[in-house]
Each structure stands twice: as structure tokens, then as C-alpha cells.
Computed example of a mutant assay.
Amino acid sequence: MALLSFVESAPRAYRLKVGNADLFRNSTEPGTSPSLWETMGNVFERSIIDNISEHDARWKVLQPPTGSGKTQGACLYSAMQAKRNRDTQGNLKPVGVLLVTRLIKQADDLAAQVNAMAGANVAVAHHSKSGTDADDIGRYDVLVVTHQAFVNAAETLAGAAWSRLVQWNGGHRLLTAYFSDREQPRSGRGGDRVSVLAARQG
């Protein structure tokens, strides 16, 4: 995905949700640093490239403050990536996304946000109450699961549960984003336990 299109779209989507676009100033202006979503876009893009090349499996950690728009940013990026998968089908390698969040309700909300932003049914939440078929989740560009499901599957990295999380009809899910306010994913390395969003190879 072109990073520019994501950065340009981010303020509009965030303004619709929160009514504030101050975080998305133009970082090309002298003396300004990259906006939150510009930084997110760069981290996501780097993670995808690293995953394709099998270059670097470390967690890449962002620590924006709570309420700064990281969830909406990840949803928009996921939605735009899913749309790009369809628009470039057969020409570019598709990018599947795995979003990992703390609660079942949050997983449902994330999937709904991605679908609303994509204007299509491209995301699904998979958990004990979702009723989604474990063998059917591979057809979705974006899969959303809870921390516990991620940790349980990671216990057996070679097992079927892990494979269902990180594989989909387009191949390997090339981006994993793990949201947490308190904890770090056990299968990776990270920074502080404060409002963490980590992008990692699947």
C-alpha cells in the first residue's frame, strides 16, 4: 500500500470517529515530527516488508497515549489493505492482517470497524462466542482474536491453531498488530507496558 494514501486518509477517518485531526499535521513542514499515523504507517509497512523477506522477526513497538487514535489507525490501515488486495488481485502479493486485542467485545468492535471502513465484509472476529467456523476464517483478509487465543495458539507454533491464525487464503498473514495497555505478547519482545501497539511478522 502506498503510505501516502494511508496518511492522507487517516485524518478524515479519525475526524469522523473522534472529531479531532490535530495529530495529523504535515510532517514535511520545517521543525515538525511525523504524525502518529504516519509513524504507524511506516512501522506497518516496514513489518510487512521484513516479513516478506524474513528479515527481522522482532516486535516493533509504538507507545502513543491512550485515546490517540491507534485503534482507528490500525482499522483503517487494515481496511485499506484489504481493498488493495482486491484491486490488485493477481498482480501483487496480498497482505493478510491479524489484529490481537484484549477482550471479546473489543475483537467484535475491531472487526466491525474494519468492515465499515472497507465497505465490505473483509474482517472477522474469531473467539469462543463468535460462532465463526475455525476452518472458514482463512477467507478473510483481516482476522481479529483475543490475547488469550493468541497466547494459547502460540504455545504450539507448529500446531493447527497457530496455523489458522497466521495463514489465510492469500498465504501468510504478513502483519500482526497486538494491542495492550498492560502486557506484552509472550511470543515477542517489546518495550514498556503502556498502551502498546506492536506490529510483528505473523
Results as ranks from 00 to 15, higher is better:
residue 104 I to L: 10
residue 192 D to M: 08
residue 6 F to S: 00
residue 104 I to T: 14
residue 18 V to C: 06
residue 23 L to Q: 06
residue 102 R to C: 00
residue 130 S to P: 08
residue 173 R to Y: 07
residue 114 V to P: 03
residue 71 T to P: 01
residue 162 W to R: 15
residue 66 T to P: 03
residue 148 Q to K: 11
residue 156 T to P: 02
residue 16 L to Y: 04
residue 100 V to T: 04
residue 105 K to I: 01
residue 13 A to V: 14
residue 111 A to C: 09
residue 119 G to F: 03
residue 89 Q to V: 13
residue 142 V to P: 00
residue 100 V to R: 04
residue 160 A to I: 04
residue 3 L to H: 05
residue 131 G to V: 09
residue 168 W to K: 06
residue 154 A to T: 06
residue 148 Q to S: 13
residue 132 T to G: 10
residue 32 T to I: 02
residue 4 L to I: 08
residue 106 Q to M: 12
residue 39 T to V: 13
residue 87 D to Q: 13
residue 77 Y to A: 09
residue 23 L to T: 01
residue 41 G to E: 08
residue 35 S to N: 05
residue 55 H to A: 15
residue 126 H to W: 15
residue 201 Q to T: 13
residue 110 L to V: 10
residue 90 G to W: 04
residue 111 A to V: 11
residue 166 V to S: 13
residue 124 V to E: 02
residue 135 D to A: 15
residue 89 Q to K: 14
residue 33 S to F: 05
residue 78 S to I: 09
residue 110 L to K: 03
residue 106 Q to V: 09
residue 83 K to E: 07
residue 134 A to G: 12
residue 181 D to C: 07
residue 41 G to M: 07
residue 7 V to H: 04
residue 27 S to I: 05
residue 118 A to L: 07
residue 43 V to N: 00
residue 181 D to T: 13
residue 111 A to S: 14
residue 53 S to I: 03
residue 123 A to L: 09
residue 138 G to D: 11
residue 191 G to H: 09
residue 179 F to V: 02
residue 117 M to D: 08
residue 35 S to A: 14
residue 147 H to I: 04
residue 152 N to L: 07
residue 81 Q to F: 00
residue 80 M to I: 06
residue 137 I to F: 04
